[in-house]
Amino acid sequence: MSLFNIAPVTVDDYRRIAQRRLPKFLFDYIDGGANREEILARNCGDFSQLQLKQRVLRDVGSIDTATTLFGRSMAMPVALAPVGMAGLFRRRGETQAARAAERCGIPFATSTVGVCPVDEVAASVAEPIWFQLYMLRDRDFVLEMLERARNAGVDTLLFTVDLPVPGMRQRDFRNGMIGGGTAGKISKLAQILSSPRWIYDVGLRGKPHTFGNVASKVENPKDLDLYKSFIDGQFDPTVTWSDIAWLRQQWHGKLIIKGVMESDDALAAIDCGAEGIVVSNHGGRQLDGIASPIAKLPGVARAVNRQCSIMLDSGVRNGIDVVKALACGADAVLLGRPWVYAMAAGGEQGVVDLLEMINKEVEIAMALMGVNRIDEITGELLDSDLW
Rank of each mutant, 00 (worst) to 15 (best):
L193F: 11
S194C: 12
S195N: 04
P196T: 00
R197C: 11
R197W: 14
W198F: 11
I199Q: 04
D201N: 11
D201E: 15
G203Y: 08
G203V: 09
K207G: 03
P208M: 01
H209C: 03
F211N: 05
F211R: 00
N213C: 06
V214A: 13
A215C: 14
A215L: 11
S216M: 09
K217W: 03
E219T: 12
P221S: 12
P221A: 10
K222A: 15
K222H: 13
L226N: 12
L226D: 15
L226F: 12
Y227A: 14
S229P: 06
S229V: 07
S229G: 12
S229A: 15
D232W: 07
D232G: 01
G233T: 09
G233C: 10
G233W: 13
F235P: 02
P237T: 14
W241C: 06
S242M: 08
S242F: 07
I244P: 01
I244G: 00
A245L: 03
L247I: 07
R248P: 05
R248H: 07
Q250E: 13
W251E: 01
L255P: 03
I256A: 14
I257Y: 05
K258V: 05
V260P: 09
E262P: 01
D265C: 00
A266T: 02
I270A: 11
C272R: 03
G273Q: 01
G273N: 00
E275L: 00
E275R: 00
G276Q: 07
I277F: 04
V279A: 09
V279R: 03
N281F: 11
G283H: 13
R285H: 08
R285N: 10
Q286T: 05
Q286W: 01
L287K: 04
I290S: 08
P293K: 09
I294R: 01
I294E: 07
I294A: 06
K296D: 07
K296N: 15
K296G: 02
K296C: 15
P298E: 04
G299N: 14
G299K: 11
G299E: 10
G299C: 05
G299R: 09
A301L: 10
R302E: 07
V304Y: 06
Q307N: 10
C308S: 05
D313M: 15
S314V: 13
S314C: 09
G315L: 10
V316K: 04
R317W: 10
N318W: 02
N318D: 15
G319I: 05
I320Q: 14
D321K: 02
V322M: 02
V322D: 09
V323K: 00
K324T: 01
K324M: 03
A325R: 07
A327C: 13
C328H: 09
D331P: 09
D331N: 15
A332V: 06
A332S: 10
L334G: 12
L335E: 05
L335S: 04
R337H: 02
W339S: 06
V340Y: 00
V340T: 11
